[in-house]
Design a protein around this nucleic acid. Structure first.
Length: 580
RNA sequence: GCGCCCGUAGCUCAGCAGGAUAGAGCACCAGAUUCCUAAUCUGGGGGCCAUGGGUUCGAAUCCCGUCGGGCGCACCA
């Protein structure tokens, strides 16, 4: 065997081979097997692995589950290492495996090291993951944090599952907000020149973070633009301000260990005429027309008046109303530029994933519609998913914490990372499924107590490193020589470890990195439980005096569990610490 | 009014492409420390999986209605 095959992958293959054999023998007609699963049963007394193949295939095959189960069982009994195959319940096939087979899985972890769990599932397909994409008008705040962490972990997970991943950030540097930014910076520029500007007027960004930007411009240009009309400085100040904000955002993201491959500028996209190209194509296919915008649903504002605008026919794709791609002054709406942007992304990827905040949920339908229309027109529709991460409610001592970029009085990501650390922030954001709302209580998280699952997991790794150090000092070394000496308790740990590869695939397919975090928590729990056996029973400790073979085998197991914890934490971007 | 997300133990949440008796942490109760890190572990009580229907061999999981919470609803981004 030149390639190391993990145990679950091997048995998925064995079940498949058994079905092949039955097809060839004419026992089973050729039917799709998509729903066939091979997984450990919830109840360990049911065996080591179970498959639902007979139940799932009975109906399409026109036979009954028990009869089919008998036939499959016959094939599976031939597989080396299978000690028993039982048919249970409505037609489950429960397999019991030779413990030696499980023990081999430890060697697989050792052989593959950091690659244990890596999958070819993605088959090299290029997936573009766009995440964060916060407006470049200020530093990152906690509202951006969840999407940033989830997107980054998802990107790592997809990579590990065999995709080529592009980590992309879309820079909205073309709209009205960046003009406001430029004017705010101009104010700070005049302030830096000695002018008393007083309070920052309503409608401009008041945050102190713009002060150094104004100072830099004052140092570079003197009072050249202090009294000049904005036509002379607006574009320049906008460019400078956006660049400064982007640098700040990149520094903030770096604190979380996040680095994008690509920053795409909306302004450059527009300068290159991409939205015009998209519009022309959509008009040619009757997907954009000049029409009257409907009044908003619900409460209609007093100043509502009908206008004619170029509209995209998103209602054809299930949206509530057609959406404008240009404003009445002819400039692009956010949507108009965004559809061109997504079209551009689709050209260099096999699939697209966007991570958005839930406050943008209302625009999902229109952009999905536009991407479907445009990529269909290009030949084949590109898979495009939008993962919405729900709001994070910031609490401090039970009191809600308000965040508002305009007030300039918000909780920055940098502050939080400084307070609690990157690992706590990242892990905490991943210990809840993204589509559920979340409370982030500072006092709780700052506590850094055992309430934080991240410590529980890191502690498991630290303990492993600790025992390996201690053993080395006492002259023991991990060794697979005595691996057959490992018993029930060790096997339970191995069985949990062996699930990692299929978990990676399931999590990647579902685009749900949080599953890795929960798995690591379980794994850490199993390890701590095993460790504590030694409290009552000295013979269950890792280091057993006078038994170098058993000690070596247990250290070998510990070492591989440590490797596994590192592999999982690496996907989440959390450090595996040596000691605590 | 409409769209999307959520509703599982007292609290915070898992539940793996419907699967066999619904899980964990916290809190509560009872225990464990001359012991490789007690930042830990062992045992116990606690559930009409919001609610009413439907789909099927089987539903916390899929479909429809209702109730409750969140987000959004012009040319903003």
């Amino acid at each position: 065997m030149t390639e190391t095959t993990t145990l679950h992958a091997a048995f998925a293959g064995h079940v498949n081979a058994a079905l092949d054999a039955l097809e060839q023998a004419g026992t089973l007609p050729t039917v799709p097997r998509g729903a066939v699963a091979v997984e450990p049963p919830r109840d360990p007394s049911h065996g080591d692995l179970a498959t639902n193949a007979a139940m799932v295939l009975a109906k399409p095959a026109g036979t009954n589950p028990r009869a089919l189960a008998e036939a499959i069982a016959g094939e599976l009994r031939k597989v080396p290492g299978v000690t028993a195959v039982e048919i249970a319940g409505p037609g489950f096939l429960n397999l019991r495996l030779d413990p030696a087979l499980w023990v081999q899985e430890i060697r697989a972890i050792a052989a593959l090291g950091g690659d244990y769990g890596r999958s070819a599932l993605g088959a090299g397909q290029v997936v573009n993951v766009e995440y964060v994409s916060a407006n470049p008008t200020g530093p990152m705040h906690m509202g951006h944090c969840r999407g940033a962490v989830v997107g980054d972990a998802l990107a790592s997970l997809l990579e590990f599952a065999g995709h080529k991943v592009i980590r992309e950030y879309y820079v909205n540097d073309a709209g009205g907000q960046v003009d406001v930014l430029a004017r705010s910076v101009h104010l700070r520029y005049r302030e830096a020149l000695g002018e008393d500007v007083g309070e920052v007027p309503e409608g401009l960004y008041p945050g102190d973070y713009l002060v150094p930007v104004g100072q830099a411009l004052a140092a570079e240009f003197g009072d050249k633009y202090a009294r000049a009309p904005d036509s002379e400085w607006l574009a320049l100040f906008r460019t400078r301000a956006v660049a400064a904000m982007l640098n700040m955002i990149k520094a903030d993201l770096a604190l979380l260990g996040i680095h994008h491959d690509l920053f795409s500028s909306e302004a450059e996209l527009q300068a290159a005429g991409k939205p015009e190209e998209a519009e022309a194509w959509l008009r040619a296919h009757d997907l954009v027309y000049d029409g009257e915008l409907e009044a908003p649903k619900g409460k209609t504002p007093e100043d509502w008046e009908p206008v004619e605008l170029p509209l995209f026919r998103s209602t054809r794709f299930g949206d509530d109303q057609d959406r404008p791609i240009r404003k009445s002054d002819g400039s692009w709406t956010y949507f108009g530029a965004d559809l061109a942007y997504h079209f551009q992304k689709a050209a260099s990827a096999d699939a697209l994933v966007d991570i958005w905040g839930a406050d943008h949920a209302g625009t999902v339908k229109r952009i999905k519609a536009a991407v479907a229309a445009l990529t269909q027109g290009q030949g084949k529709e590109k898979p495009f998913e939008i993962k919405l991460v729900q709001m994070v409610q910031l609490l401090k001592g039970g009191q809600p914490f308000k965040m508002s970029k305009r007030s300039g009085n918000f909780v920055t990501l940098a502050d939080v990372v400084e307070m609690v650390g990157k690992d706590v922030v990242r892990f905490t954001m991943l210990t809840r499924k993204p589509e559920a709302q979340m409370d982030f209580d500072f006092d709780k998280v700052v506590e850094a107590s055992k309430d934080n699952p991240v410590f529980y997991v890191q502690y498991a790794h630290a303990r492993i490193r600790s025992i390996l150090r201690k053993a080395e000092a006492e002259g023991y070394a991990p060794s697979s020589d005595g691996i057959e000496l490992l018993g029930e308790e060790e096997l339970a740990l191995v069985k949990l470890a062996a699930q990692f590869p299929r978990l990676v695939e399931a999590a990647a397919a579902a685009r749900e990195p949080h599953r890795i975090a929960f798995y690591l928590y379980d794994l850490a729990g199993a390890f701590h439980g095993y460790w504590n056996l030694g409290n009552d029973k000295p013979e269950k400790r890792f280091i057993v005096a006078q038994d170098a073979r058993l000690t070596g085998a247990r250290l070998y197991l510990a070492s591989q569990i440590g490797q596994l914890v590192r592999n999982g934490l690496a996907l989440l971007g959390v450090e595996a610490v040596e000691e605590m």
